[in-house]
Simulated assay, not measured.
Amino acid sequence: MARASRKEAEQHRKDIVEAASHLFREKGVGRVSVPELMAAAGMTHGGFYGHFASKDALAAEAFEAAFRQMNERIARSAEGRSWEAARAGLIDSYLSCEHRDHPESGCAAAGLLDFPRDTDSEAVRAAYANGVAAMLDAIEAAQAEASPEARPAAMATLATLVGSLLLARATKDTPLSEAFLEAGRARLAEKSLVANPEGPAEN
């Protein structure tokens, strides 16, 4: 069999990372086998170690790809929109039934939360932490001007979004699920957890 060209090898690697990014968010890293993710990428099991030294090495790259996808989505949603519209759009799309039901293409901060806690891989933990930091940067850039309050406010917003989404997923098919989504939306609408560029909200 002819050996793959460098360009083909690079594309195969990208396909593996993309497949892993989706599967890891959908099922969790520990529940996805190497044969399963290689099949999802359209390749055989034996080709995995020609691209990655270990599953952890793949996980670090897949985490980076998943966070990059989410952060690009946040940036696109804010283009040409006011601060208020960008914030409202982020909350509504994040705390939606569609996002709850499709973790494979959703937020990396929520979908990949378990593995960094359980792994000994410093690269994976760093990839997750760096991804969360970049996500906070994207939220700040999309929703507020720079100010001393912007970072803590973005952190509080992200914590409310992720917490509400995780609880909604954990209670899916019960009345609590949509109630958690609604409660998160209501909380973020009730009190500005993102620094308002026109000044802090009055109590």
Rank of each mutant, 00 (worst) to 15 (best):
R81K: 15
R81T: 10
S82C: 12
W83R: 14
W83I: 06
W83K: 09
A86I: 01
A88K: 15
A88C: 05
G89R: 08
G89E: 09
L90F: 15
L90C: 07
L90V: 13
I91N: 05
I91R: 10
D92I: 00
D92V: 07
S93L: 11
S93N: 12
S93T: 14
Y94M: 13
Y94C: 03
L95K: 06
L95Y: 04
S96K: 09
C97E: 15
H99N: 13
H99W: 08
R100H: 04
R100V: 01
R100G: 03
P103Y: 04
P103F: 04
P103R: 10
E104R: 09
E104Y: 07
E104H: 11
G106L: 09
G106F: 01
C107Q: 03
A109P: 04
A110F: 00
A110D: 02
G111L: 02
G111H: 01
G111W: 01
G111R: 01
L112M: 08
L112E: 01
D114N: 07
D114C: 07
D114G: 00
P116L: 05
P116W: 06
P116V: 04
R117F: 05
R117V: 09
R117G: 04
D118L: 12
D118Y: 02
D118K: 10
D118Q: 12
T119K: 09
E122M: 08
E122H: 08
E122N: 06
A123K: 14
A123Q: 13
A126M: 11
A127F: 07
A127V: 04
A129D: 13
A129G: 05
A129C: 06
N130C: 09
G131N: 08
G131E: 07
G131F: 08
G131D: 09
A133P: 04
A133L: 08
A134S: 12
A134N: 13
A134P: 00
M135W: 02
L136W: 03
L136A: 07
D137E: 11
A138H: 09
I139A: 06
I139N: 02
I139P: 00
E140R: 13
E140F: 01
E140C: 12
A141V: 02
Q143H: 09
A144V: 12
E145L: 14
A146W: 11
A146G: 10
A146H: 12
S147E: 13
S147N: 14
P148R: 11
P148D: 12
P148Y: 13
E149V: 03
A150D: 02
R151F: 11
R151I: 05
P152L: 10
A154S: 14
A154R: 05
M155P: 05
M155Q: 15
A156I: 08
A156E: 15
A156T: 14
T157W: 12
T160R: 04
L161Y: 02
L161F: 03
L161Q: 04
V162L: 09
G163A: 02
G163I: 00
G163E: 00
G163P: 01
G163K: 00
S164W: 00
S164T: 07
L165D: 03
L165M: 15
L165T: 03
L166Y: 03
L166S: 09
L166P: 05
L167V: 11
L167P: 00
R169A: 06
R169L: 04
A170R: 14
A170M: 12
T171I: 07
K172T: 14
K172A: 15
T174S: 14
P175C: 11
P175F: 11
L176R: 13
L176F: 13
